[in-house]
Design a protein around this nucleic acid. Structure first.
Lengths: 358, 358
DNA sequence: CGCTGTTCTGTTAGCGCTATCCTTCGCCGT
DNA sequence: ACGGCGAAGGATAGCGCTAACAGAACAGCG
């Protein structure tokens, strides 16, 4: 039977005008499709030289892998649910962007699920099952809920906690070294000449809070400064709690020359309190925060703070989950990974040397 | 009976344990895969009897079509890009959540693209093309960039603007009635007894700013109050501009009893200024914002503000784009739609009747 | 009965990618 | 030399689905 009878021209196929495909890249790089695939997936056993050639071709053609095709051919459909509760919204947006990128990169579907705890844990599990969820991504503060974690790890869905201080041994986790970060920030203040450094602790139920406080204390100890208990105040990560703690610290007979708040919201509140008392920031009082959320650059002066690579963390956690799901489907089990990403001290305008180093 | 005769014994396929496929259903129903596909897609030209048989088989096997395969095979692939610039991040998180939901609902892929304007418009267009973007979603403030809009609508990608005051005639748009919202908020203050109501305008380049101001003026006019020009101050949606405008308004010889800021950031700044001057909010000064971003409930007291259903708006815009892309592929053209979603006045603790209605 | 339409249903060939072989090649030890 | 081994990369066959076309079944009409 003459397949190409009517037209001498081979049938155009039903290519979407879309874009370059693996075979285009392969042709351009002078390798096989499979090698391109290997480069994309960062598999081993590809010579550096070959990899470079392929990457060049990818860049030149502006190639982007088709997620649909990937999940069809590869490990198969993978739906991961991002479970969130109380959105510290600035955080969530970066987190979402990261998850989306991670999901896109591994060809997974991302679903957003809200859970406020009112609905029981089992009801949640049922909901996830109905949505054919393969894995669950937990940003703070949900990643700290022991009940939730238990229920989730009880199912056969891999779970990833992001930014928890104390990862569960049965879950994947991505975080920064909160303790080292707090220590670095405190040390920074000490180097500038501050000696009376106030600290506003975070929500006591979150494990990261303890680590941040430990880092602060460690830095003081390393510098030979005795930590005055009066300089440490409790907070719960809200602006309002920062207001109260700030008032308390600045009402001391010998107030601190710098205040390190465990997050940006509380630091912003401290700035507000300082202004109310007609103290200049950073002239009369240095203030620093933690997280580098939108709040940090919203207030004036902009806050010196610790940047967590939230997007990267979310992206890494997402990819981890996809890998876990695929491994599980292949019959293996991916041992819980606990990644730690680097943080950075971001210097802005809310910190300066103390006016008189007494 | 033998397996498929034509081909040799298939080599141990790499079936995922997943679920039943079209061919399972087809075999169970005694029809071809194609017929099953037709039933799934509710195509015409399938006998009622056949359809019933297939549907029965689907139900019996618990078959669910694989979206990845569908979009690979069908033209279904649709990649929509969410283009964002400015870290108006609190807004973005809700926006993202909405877009994701919208994309999932219509089976589209969502990509996040950052653009700060440094890279030229054509470079951006090239990047989008390289990422096989089919349509572009523009949250504020990018949706106001005429240059960008021109460049984008010049391509054959559908574009949707979200929350713009003045939709382009060639783009889709989803917004709220900013003017009516500002009018409602102002009227609310008037009903409480305020007569000297300060207004902080938004970034003059954004069309929504003008509408909000017009709404404010309209409400005053309707109540027979003459708008004192001194009570209107310019701002640009930043906290810092709110600080300056707040200072100016409260320094007037006859200061306002209420200040309506065009967004929450500026309203938060006004609260801060008021506190610095030892004015109680809302006792001595009522303050209200606009947008209901995270900032509104971060500061204390929490802000009375206008809620825009950002997530719904993003979701609606996303679905609109998908529809437009599919229509275009089918050869038709979806005329630009301009949707307007309802807003709501959210009463919190930053507004009260004036102490003495003078 | 042929001849045209009109439904319906089946067949074939991919969509873009990766799993699973398989070949090739260089490097070691004896 | 030789066999053996592991790394690098190629060839091929699908993943589950649908577009496009090719029949088959059935109607009406001369």
């Amino acid at each position: 039977m003459g397949r190409e009878m009517g037209k001498g021209q081979p049938r155009r196929g039903r290519r979407r005008g879309s874009g370059p495909t693996v075979s285009d890249v392969a042709r351009a790089a002078g390798v096989s499709q499979m090698t391109v695939s290997r480069v994309i997936n960062r598999e081993a056993n590809v010579r550096e030289e070959t990899r470079a050639k392929v990457e060049e071709a990818i860049a030149a053609l502006g190639y982007v892998p088709d997620p649909a095709a990937r999940s069809l051919a590869g490990g198969g459909q993978c739906r991961i649910a991002l479970l969130y509760s109380n959105p510290s919204a600035a955080y969530l947006s970066e987190f979402l962007a990261g998850s989306i990128a991670g999901a896109a990169a591994s060809g997974a579907q991302l679903g957003i699920e809200h859970w406020d705890g009112a609905e029981g844990v089992e009801a949640l599990a049922r909901r996830l099952a109905a949505h054919r969820t393969d894995a669950v991504l937990l940003p703070p503060p949900l990643c700290e809920s022991a009940a939730l974690l238990d229920a989730l790890t009880g199912t056969d869905m891999p779970v990833a906690q992001v930014a928890t201080g104390e990862p569960s041994p049965v879950a994947h986790a991505v975080s920064i070294d909160d303790r080292a970060a707090a220590e670095a920030m405190t040390a920074h203040l000490i180097v500038l000449g501050h000696r009376r450094i106030g600290f506003i602790a975070g929500e006591p139920n979150l494990t990261a809070s303890g680590l941040r406080r430990a880092g602060y204390e460690q830095a003081l100890a390393s510098a030979g400064i005795t930590a005055a208990p009066a300089l440490i105040r409790g907070g719960n990560f809200t602006y309002r709690s920062g207001l109260a703690a700030g008032e308390a610290l600045l009402s001391l007979s010998s107030p601190p020359t710098a205040i390190f708040a465990s997050n940006d919201d509380m630091a912003a509140a401290v700035v507000s309190v300082a202004h109310r008392r007609h103290l200049e920031v950073p002239g009369d009082l240095s203030v620093c925060g933690f997280d580098d959320t939108a709040m940090a650059i919203t207030v004036w002066p902009e806050l010196t703070t610790i940047r967590q690579p939230v997007a990267e963390m979310a992206s890494a956690a997402t990819e981890l989950l996809v890998k876990a799901v695929r491994a599980r489907r292949a019959g293996e089990e991916l041992a819980p990974q606990h990644l730690q990403l680097p943080f950075a001290v971001i210097s802005r305008d809310s910190v300066a040397p103390p006016r008189r180093s007494d």
